[in-house]
């Protein structure tokens, strides 16, 4: 890094006060969509992290769900309500599971990586559906969250949840950005470009993929906890393949150019859906699919590729 501040980091830091101000300025329902989309945006960020290494995870819902359930079960059964503790528990669980599973998954590439991760998330889905103590498909509700001993209620709780989500999401995004700029992050990209050459250079692609897999799991787990906290309810659908498919969709729609892209993309997707449902309650999926096709056709690099277009324009 040179002496100038990294613009993405500056932007992320500046985004926090803006989001907080917006939290007060915008109506409640809109900040709620914002909050929920930051949570799912983190899972999409996890997918994007893997995409940077050429890996597409069609089962990221596994860790999104695992995180949400880790948080939810600690709250529901152990009475732990502190958001930071829940976050920590989710990360520990996600990292533990992904570390073990990673030995298997890290051997796979391309479509097989996608399919194996999909199978694993569907196994979790199956297990949770059988778990009657956890409410099966109905899931269960989370108790109100506390923040380092601060136990707000009603509107204050909502606001605290929003602030917490914003801080965590932006901090994670900043951390991922720093990682991607580090030498280790660069190897990830090299794995995508040409794995064999990475080996010739003395690095182990399998080790790199394993590491990325675990990091992505932790991030998705955090996203899951945030989703659980904001919605107040968890259910096995978080691990269903369509949920994971949505994360892949967000990551591709927004592009892999910048860590902020999946966060913005998640919100964009939610808003497209809300208005599609409003204008055409019976065919909103068709609108979503149409938008998707148009983006893939005309902006194959995702929305973020608009930056590049502009830059090209600037050069000529």
């Amino acid at each position: 890094m040179n002496r100038r501040m990294d613009p993405t980091l500056v932007s992320l830091a500046a985004a926090l006060p803006v989001l907080l101000v917006l939290g007060y300025a915008l109506p409640d329902w809109l900040t709620f969509y914002l909050q929920v989309s930051l949570a799912s945006g983190l899972a999409a960020l996890a997918v994007m992290l893997q995409m940077r290494a050429g890996l597409v995870n069609f089962g990221q819902g596994l860790y999104y769900c695992l995180g949400a359930y880790a948080g939810g079960m600690s709250g529901h059964f152990l009475g732990i309500t502190d958001a930071l503790v829940l976050l920590l528990l989710a990360v520990v669980l996600s990292v533990a599971v992904s570390f073990i599973v990673g030995f298997l998954v890290a051997r796979y590439r391309e479509i097989f990586y996608a399919m194996l991760s999909l199978a694993l998330s569907m196994i979790l889905y199956g297990l949770l559906v059988r778990a009657e103590a956890l409410g099966s498909t109905d899931g269960f509700n989370l108790p109100s969250t506390t923040f380092l001993g601060y136990a707000p209620e009603g509107q204050a709780l909502r606001e605290a949840g929003y602030v917490f989500t914003c801080i965590v999401a932006l901090a994670i995004a900043a951390a991922v950005h720093r990682y991607l700029r580090s030498p280790l992050g660069a190897i990830g990209e090299a794995v995508r470009e040409n794995e064999l050459r990475v080996e010739y250079l003395g690095a182990s692609p399998r080790y790199v993929v394993h590491l990325i897999y675990v990091m992505a799991a932790a991030i998705a787990g955090i996203g899951g906890v945030l989703a659980g906290i904001s919605v107040g309810h968890v259910d096995p659908n978080l691990a269903y393949w369509t949920t994971s498919g949505q994360f892949v969709f967000i990551a591709l729609l927004s592009g892999t150019g910048n860590v902020a892209a999946p966060l913005i993309g998640a919100f964009l997707l939610v808003m497209i859906r809300v208005y599609a449902v409003e204008y055409s309650p019976y065919t909103w999926q068709m609108i979503l699919g149409g938008v998707m096709l148009l983006i893939i056709m005309f902006l194959p690099g995702g929305l973020w590729s608009l930056t590049r277009l502009r830059k090209k324009g600037g050069l000529t």
């Binding site: 597409v56 065919t283 999926q285 068709m286 096709l293 893939i296």
Partner: peptide, 30 residues
């Protein structure tokens, strides 16, 4: 649709067919 997409990444093609799937599901309803 598809013929405009050949040569794209395999995974992107999954997304293309996912979009087609969403459209077809609603078309069936229509």
């Amino acid at each position: 649709v598809l013929r405009f997409m050949y040569g794209q990444d395999e995974v992107l093609m999954i997304l293309v067919t996912y979009a087609i799937f969403l459209i077809l599901e609603d078309l069936i309803k229509v």
